[in-house]
Design a protein around this nucleic acid. Structure first.
Length: 275
DNA sequence: ATAAGGCCCTGACCGC
DNA sequence: TGCGGTCAGGGCCTTA
């Protein structure tokens, strides 16, 4: 699943490919992929646009155009955005094809069809629901503690809530909770000050490490939820302590990792190390 | 306001 | 081998 480190890797690796390139048009094969404007008006709006700036907010890619529009892309679970040569073969999962002025194609592919694309003058409106960026100064221990206080939902559920902190998904939530020694089912409001501070630091640590490893590539035999734009895999999946390690020994104490379901998501933890 | 559950989608996987 | 059923999962929507 593309989360903050995966999206950050995407932006960093797409930027040199797309900088200064002009989009000639678009062919939309699955209309629901286009969130704004609608699929009918998207090709006409993007035709002639030239990529200028590259950024990220939470799990959203922000590709700024010279004229002020922003191409906002959310990969959700299985989305891929990549630049291919003109003779690249497209398949039934290629939902948007955007020819570029250098003869190549910018492709959006997504087997689950959950991914979404916006082309809007005001990207902030699309992002208005997001909480602070976890790696920026606006994500403070005090603010995080305030957001968790008096909440009865599990801390795992709130880490997945993008209005609490932006960019954390199932992988990095489980890994951060393990490193902070906090049981994922704990009601968020019961975390003590020291635990909130430890979790705050752990979130930042796993995200920084994830970026350094170019993200986590999961899945086997073909279906990769996340592949870097150039086609290579990330490396953080080799650093997982608990995620998708059910029954395997905790790297700290050797106790078998357990799996439970919280907020309708698979949740992995060490019953010995996390309280 | 908060919490919980359904929904969108389809490839992979399992049991028969 | 083929087939039906189940699962995964981010964000949005509805319900309580």
């Amino acid at each position: 699943m593309p989360e903050l480190p995966e999206v950050e890797t995407y932006v960093r690796e797409l930027a040199p490919e797309l900088a200064g390139r002009q989009v000639l048009g678009a062919q939309v094969n699955w209309s629901r992929t286009i969130a704004s404007p609608d699929a009918e008006h998207f090709p006409g709006l993007i035709a002639g646009q030239r990529f200028a700036t590259f950024g990220r907010r939470g799990k959203y890619m922000l590709l700024g155009m010279e004229g002020g529009l922003t191409l906002v892309v959310h990969l959700r679970m299985t989305g891929h955005l990549r630049v291919e040569s003109a003779d690249a073969t497209t398949d039934q999962h290629t939902h948007v094809v955007m020819p570029l002025d250098d003869g190549r194609l910018l492709l959006f592919q997504d087997s689950r069809k959950f991914g979404r694309i916006w082309l809007v003058p005001d990207a902030a409106a699309v992002l208005a629901h997001l909480g602070p960026e976890p790696l920026e100064a606006g994500f403070t221990v005090a603010g995080f503690a305030e957001r968790l206080s008096n909440r009865t939902a599990s801390i795992k559920a709130l880490l997945l809530d993008q209005s609490i902190v932006a960019g954390v998904g199932n992988i990095y939530a489980d890994e951060a909770l393990f490193r902070a020694g906090i049981h994922p089912a704990r009601p968020a409001g019961t975390l003590e000050a020291g635990e909130v501070a430890a979790l705050h630091a752990a979130i930042r640590a796993v995200l920084v490490e994830g970026i350094a490893k170019a993200g986590s590539s999961l899945g086997k035999s073909g279906l990769q939820n996340y592949v870097r734009p150039g086609g290579s895999l990330g490396g953080f999946q080799d650093e997982f302590k608990v995620f998708r390690r059910t029954g395997l020994p905790c790297p700290v104490c050797g106790t078998p990792v357990e799996r439970i379901v919280l907020a309708q998501r698979s949740t992995h933890f060490c019953p010995q190390c996390q309280h």
